[in-house]
């Protein structure tokens, strides 16, 4: 039951899937972050094994994998919370080792799963941390804080003077995001940013996240173990296991062209749903009403299954018809 509710909310909270949603259209995307043969060993344990990655400016790269696969270590090496044992990391072409780590980190937004908000600071003070470190004047900081809260659908007057303990989990996560964005850094690192939230809240925040214009031209590296989240938010996915990269590329490549047995079995459980999500309604049914043309098949199926319970939904799909069309579409594609 809870699974149904979960999926349902995902469904109605979703916007249309469109690859490269978050990235602005860039004619010549330059590389923002580059990892070259990076490894990390703790004692005799090699947790990241000789990985190389390139993340273009404005791109959202999701590091996907089970816990212990090295994805968080990889993320934390980018802002030098962990120093790489070997290999090199460049941001904007500059080796991060050539920069003072504190200065480096002030230029990179950092969002954690459990927010890491300072419990003794108000919302306003939390958001002001990095701008203050950068020496902004208070007027500029106040203006920026108010603006960010507005964009995150939180009333500045109501929230600025609250302490984190007075906020809900979702509100805390939004403030965490606002804090990371406060100084408008070009790069954002996000470590399971929605992991600690209940499904309903997570869905809402993911939606806000996708809509947020602040993020449109940011280069984002996000860590998650949630396949749906990865497919929903990523421009590119990097699937990791035991410290190694198993496949990296656009989400649809993972479905259409899995690089190995590991990749396909990793996605197997979620495969049908992902495929349904990755196929637009308009692709299987060209005659669909224009208001529904930006739905995908998964969403259309769910609406159809719930028909009657949701009289306000205007769409009118037949479940069997949808499945039939989908299968025809798939087999046609494949063969």
């Amino acid at each position: 039951m809870s699974d149904i509710i979960y999926d349902f909310h995902r469904l109605f909270g979703r916007r249309t899937y469109k690859p490269c949603l978050l990235s602005a259209t860039i004619l010549l995307p330059s590389t923002m972050i580059r990892l070259e043969n990076v490894s990390k060993t703790f004692g005799s344990d090699t947790v990241v094994k000789n990985i190389s990655l390139e993340i273009a400016e404005g791109e959202t790269m999701v590091l996907l994998g089970t816990s212990g696969c090295g994805k968080t270590t990889t993320l934390r090496m980018i802002n030098r919370l962990i120093e790489a044992s070997s290999g090199q990391i460049f941001i904007h072409g500059q080796n991060i080792l050539d920069q003072n780590p504190e200065i480096l980190r002030r230029g990179i937004g950092y969002v954690l799963q459990n927010t890491g908000l300072f419990p003794h600071y108000t919302v306003a003070e939390n958001i002001a941390i990095v701008p203050k470190l950068l020496g902004w004047d208070s007027e500029k900081i106040n203006k920026r804080s108010g603006e960010l809260l507005e964009k995150l659908h939180l009333k500045p007057g109501e929230f600025l003077n609250k302490y984190p303990s007075e906020l809900s989990g979702g509100q805390q996560q939004r403030i965490g995001l606002a804090r990371a964005l406060a100084a408008d850094p070009p790069v954002l690192l996000m470590d399971e940013p929605f992991g600690a939230l209940d499904p309903i809240t997570r869905n809402k925040i993911q939606k806000d996240f996708k809509d947020l214009d602040e993020l449109k031209n940011k280069t984002i590296v996000m860590v998650t173990h949630d396949v749906y989240e990865a497919f929903e938010l990523a421009d590119k996915i990097c699937l990791m296991d035991k410290g190694e990269i198993k496949q990296q590329g656009a989400p649809e490549e993972f479905l259409s062209n899995p690089a190995s047995h590991f990749v396909s079995s990793f996605l197997k459980e979620q495969r049908l749903q992902l495929e349904l999500q990755n196929t637009m309604l308009s692709a299987i049914d060209p005659g669909v009403m224009s208001s529904d043309s930006n739905l995908n098949v998964w969403e259309a199926l769910n609406i159809s299954l719930k028909k009657g319970h949701k009289p306000e939904e205007s769409a009118d799909f037949e479940t069997a018809e949808l499945i039939k069309n989908f299968i025809r579409h798939k087999t046609g594609n494949n063969g």
Binding site: L81, E102, R105, R106, G107, L112, G116, I129, V130, L133
Partner: peptide, 8 residues
């Protein structure tokens, strides 16, 4: 960690 990550 978040304090460190923000560059304090």
């Amino acid at each position: 960690e978040s304090a460190k990550g923000m560059g304090m």
